[in-house]
């Protein structure tokens, strides 16, 4: 289990990094926290010719609140992100999601940007970003663009990033009064990939749901908003029956496949159950 040979580049500036990505394109792979990439290198499932280590790029690990969202530099470590005051105050969904990611020492190293760019359909942060309707800023020599989370995740391990682009920051919409959220997942062991996961974000006005976003992961090929569930909830007050209906709508909307540890039927059932629980909790939080 040793990586195949590669060339190692450690750019000191963003311009230099983007130049390397422009030069090497698909031959290059960005090394951020490395918690997913390095095992893939060691198993030789990933064999980049050039590894661009972005860890020393200056100014990319900040976490700050501004204009209705929290901006997280791509190199913000997951553990720091989950406990950062702006996140604790304004993005409680992320704070709920982070402890489910791996383990203490891997969260110390794993980055927010790396997790988003990796686009693992079983990962927590992409799901949270989609549920919140957040976005990512991608930079290349050609310029910068902001891509909505809904458009960022294409399929399992595939994002809208072009080979010459670097994800430089993520934007996490802040929750204000009347907003409530909940993150639910079930894994066989603490820190494992989930058998089912969901994130629910609700906005309540006059004791009715004004905005409802229910997203699921793990059972879909990318973190996916379930509009059927949102529509069911819109304009309503949540009770146990409605939460269950939202869960059923989500369960109907997904089409999982049998996996090593769980049948498709279980994953579908679990998704419904977790959505039901998340809707109830988000409602409580929003009240």
């Amino acid at each position: 289990m040793k990586p195949a040979p590669f060339r190692y580049e450690r750019p000191e500036t963003l311009e230099e990094a983007l130049g390397l990505l422009a030069e090497h394109g698909e031959e290059a792979k960005v090394l951020a926290g490395g918690q997913s990439l390095v095992p893939l290198l060691s198993m030789r499932f990933a064999r980049p010719a050039v590894l661009v280590d972005v860890n020393r790029l200056p100014g990319l690990d900040g976490i700050a609140a501004e204009n209705g969202h929290v901006r997280a530099g791509t190199l913000a470590r997951q553990s720091a992100f989950g406990e950062a005051p702006p996140v604790l105050e304004r993005v409680p969904l992320a704070t709920e999601a982070v402890p489910h990611i791996g383990h203490f020492a891997t969260r110390n190293r794993g980055t927010v940007g790396g997790s988003i760019a990796h686009a693992d359909a079983r990962a927590e942060l992409p799901l949270a970003l989609v549920a919140l309707g957040g976005s990512a800023v991608l930079a290349s020599r050609r310029g910068r663009r902001e891509v909505a989370a809904d458009d960022l995740f294409v399929t399992h391990f595939t994002s809208a990033l072009e080979p010459d682009e670097l994800l430089v920051e993520t934007l996490w919409p802040a929750a204000g009064p009347g907003w409530g959220c909940a993150f639910e997942e079930l894994a066989l062991r603490a820190g494992d990939y989930a058998l089912g996961m969901t994130a629910c974000v609700l906005h309540i006005e006059e004791a009715r749901i004004a905005v409802a976003r229910v997203a699921v992961g793990a059972v879909t090929d990318r973190p996916t908003v379930i509009p059927e569930a949102g529509e069911l909830l819109a304009g309503e007050a949540v009770d146990a029956t409605l939460a269950r209906e939202a869960g059923r709508a989500a369960a109907r909307a997904v089409d999982p496949v049998d996996s090593l540890h769980a049948s498709a039927a279980y994953q579908r059932h679990l998704t419904g159950l977790l959505v039901e629980r998340a809707v109830l909790r988000a409602w409580e939080a929003a009240l």
Binding site: V38, A105, R109
Partner: peptide, 21 residues
């Protein structure tokens, strides 16, 4: 977790890290 060490004050997995880093 066997290979966990402390790098610049923070615990990390040394098997998920390159020496050059």
């Amino acid at each position: 977790g066997c290979c966990t060490i402390i790098l610049d004050g923070t615990s990390i997995r040394s098997c998920l890290f390159l020496a050059v880093q």
